[in-house]
Nucleic acid binder design. Structure first.
Lengths: 215, 215
DNA sequence: TCCAATTCTGACCGTATGGTCAGGGTTCAG
DNA sequence: CTGAACCCTGACCATACGGTCAGAATTGGA
């Protein structure tokens, strides 16, 4: 009688599902607003409107603006970390670094708002995720530096400072999200087409791989 | 009698000089606060405090927060443009692009706050300098693309998409300003030393010049 | 069917912020 | 010396924002 769809009734709480959907909608709306207006410029009212619910209800799900912001930042950090794994398990730099560039460019294309929030957070001194930087990120970086040093020792790529190589990877890939407005403007006011994105990816990979001496 | 210093009395308006000095102090303070807190998070009170004058006086020099912000952004854009010229008049890519990287890295080192304000402005859709992007920046870019294409045609560097090369130059050099907090954290919480800055510059130049096939 | 837990919401509040203004102080040309 | 232009400032607004709360609506297990 109350079965509206043809799908089997969801065993695990219709309520729980609804709650997760609402949280998801809020997080997406918040990501957009934080990206477009910055933390200080964002208002709970705007986020609520975009998510399609009253402001008071927003505070039912996330007690404070800061808590909501933190959730948004942690969310994008997860995505960032997952991409980081693509660099592992590769036998040679061309494959490992190439895959990492692909993954990070894909994040820039599909999550520009998240990337902007992340950039903004770091630019302002990482007030809410400083601990992540000092633990997770520091560890990940140290591990990758080791890998790069091994590749260099094995003669698989040109000798260079691994840290600065990582910074260049982050910078170039992230640029396509953070500065997409500038890129669009220089592209005649139009977003990059699918083909242009492919060309961007190829250019970045080509230049960096040749730069590290593996092309 | 009223001659306090040994210096000759300034011919051109003591008043004018004072005004300029105050404006300069305000702009510097504003740059810092906007960089650290973003446009929305910055307050006129904070800027006034940092500049060492009452808030009301601030409004005497800059009528509105937006006008002050615009002045700050235009100021850094000037610096940015001056660096852009270093790429001109070079006979070959190694020299031209090398000099440009040097100049932009120097900006990141000496004007991190300005760079952050600029990045923030573009990230949020360039609400106040959209016209600059569409005129000055677009023209400058088109000119440089021509130069790069000529270099490629003359066989002085590897063939590649000139726009994406420019984006990589901007991205890598600006990264050292915008993400300096992250870099510091990964550097054991300490700012880069003079030697580390030199290493950064060298790494960036080396990788990019090799990437475009001129090293 | 019933009721306790959960979810939702309009109305409200205290505070911080951008901006104003009247009036006092300072400078400098004539 | 004088007065007009310029500079400075404390006190004061109006508004917008984050957050609260009492109570209504809904849900789902017993």
């Amino acid at each position: 009688m109350n079965d509206e769809s043809g799908v089997e009734r969801p065993k695990i709480g219709r309520r729980e599902a609804q709650r997760q959907a609402t949280e998801e909608a809020i997080l997406t709306a918040a990501e957009t607003v934080f990206a477009e207006a910055g933390y200080g410029g964002a208002t709970m009212q705007l986020i609520a409107d975009l998510a399609g619910l009253p402001k008071a209800n927003l505070h039912y799900y996330f007690a404070t603006k800061e808590a909501l912001y933190r959730a948004v930042v942690e969310r994008i950090f997860e995505i960032w970390l997952r991409a980081a794994d693509t660099m592992d398990g590769a036998a040679d730099p061309a494959q490992g670094i190439g895959a990492y560039i692909d993954a990070k460019m894909e994040i820039s294309r599909r999550h520009p708002n998240g990337s902007k929030v992340w950039a903004s957070e770091v630019m302002h001194g990482a007030p809410v995720i400083q601990d992540y930087l000092e633990t997770t990120l520091r560890n990940w970086t140290a591990g990758r530096v080791k890998v790069i040093e091994r590749w260099i020792a094995e003669g698989k790529m040109a000798p260079m400072n691994p840290e600065h190589l990582l910074y260049m990877l982050w910078a170039t890939t992230q640029h396509y999200a953070d500065f997409n407005h500038q890129i669009e403007t220089l592209n005649g006011g139009k977003p990059l087409t699918r083909a242009q994105w492919a060309a961007a990816k190829a250019s970045v990979k080509e230049l960096i791989l040749r730069g590290i001496g593996v092309a």
